[in-house]
């Protein structure tokens, strides 16, 4: 790690990161704030139950809304947060490597006595920090909002934190393969296109897989299979096992990125 580069990168990155944090925090607070009115609405669950099963799975409300935890997990973690993090990870990973090579400013970073491994590791640290900050701020404001903004509804903090840690790890893996792609290409647009395309493809497989039992096998080919917010918050998954697997995958992907970047020709 090169600390001067890290702090300079974080600084120029702060505005964009701030936007993402603001978006995520504002939305989770809003969604918690309106929970009491939805929970009190009679017939809401009947309406949900009237939907076909595949549809319910898709919008993350398999069993209707029975608790605040289910509601947050389904409404926020199942949809919007997923999209926020996907966009963040894809954009940022492309900016940190492929863009600098494409534009040529990487030449200046490598013209200092810091090895390629060190430079790439610093850039990886920037995206990991950014991702961690978004999830951390969201977790804190989720806990704060359910504590102070509404009364009479309990949120189990421990399992909420577990959900957030697992969410962070899933996106760490996604960041890992995006970073790998970004480290391997000279063309910023190409890197962005491939990262976005692949992630979208995984997401579509996930949607298609959840639609019916005939298509369930598709889930085996997508990382989002591991991402089931409602099960996670209800502690129905083996968090330790999933977590360990994700950490390993992230290590391999980021490590691979550094090696690829070290070995390749750069058109600088």
């Amino acid at each position: 790690m090169s600390w001067p580069l890290y702090s300079s990168m974080m600084k120029s990155h702060a505005k964009m990161l701030g936007g993402f944090i603001y978006g995520a925090v504002a939305y989770i607070v809003l969604i918690i704030w309106i929970y009491p009115s939805i929970a009190d609405m009679k017939g809401f669950n009947d309406m949900i139950n009237a939907l076909p099963e595949g549809m319910r799975k898709l919008i993350g409300m398999e069993n209707g809304i029975n608790s605040l935890a289910d509601y947050i997990a389904g409404e926020f973690y199942g949809m919007l947060f997923l999209i926020i993090l996907m966009v963040y990870v894809i954009l940022t990973s492309t900016r940190l490597m492929a863009r600098l090579v494409d534009q040529g400013s990487m030449a200046y970073l490598l013209a200092t006595p810091n090895s390629r491994l060190k430079i790439a590791a610093t850039q990886a640290a920037v995206i990991i920090t950014g991702l961690a900050l978004i999830v951390a701020f969201t977790t804190l404001s989720g806990i704060a909002a359910s504590e102070w903004l509404i009364s009479g509804y309990e949120l189990d903090v421990a399992s909420f934190v577990t959900l957030n840690v697992l969410t962070f790890l899933i996106f760490l893996v996604i960041a890992g393969y995006c970073f790998f792609i970004s480290s391997s290409f000279n063309d910023e647009k190409k890197a962005l296109g491939i990262s976005a395309g692949l992630t979208l493809f995984f997401y579509m497989l996930n949607m298609a897989g959840k639609l019916s039992e005939d298509t369930e096998w598709l889930l085996n080919f997508t990382i989002f299979k591991l991402y089931d917010p409602i099960k996670m918050i209800n502690n129905e998954t083996d968090a330790l096992l999933t977590g360990t697997m994700l950490v390993m995958a992230a290590l391999v992907l980021f490590g691979g990125s550094l090696v690829v970047f070290k070995k390749r020709n750069l058109p600088l």
Binding site: S8, S12, L100, Q103, G104, S105, A107, Y108, L110, A111, T112, P113, N114, S115, R116, K118, L268
Partner: peptide, 22 residues
């Protein structure tokens, strides 16, 4: 040994691009 070599070198690229936002 590129990182070590860089200790000795001052480099001016043909096409100069700096980091953004500085």
């Amino acid at each position: 040994k590129s990182a070590e070599v860089q200790k000795l070198i001052g480099y001016l690229p043909g096409e100069i691009v700096f980091l953004e936002g500085m």
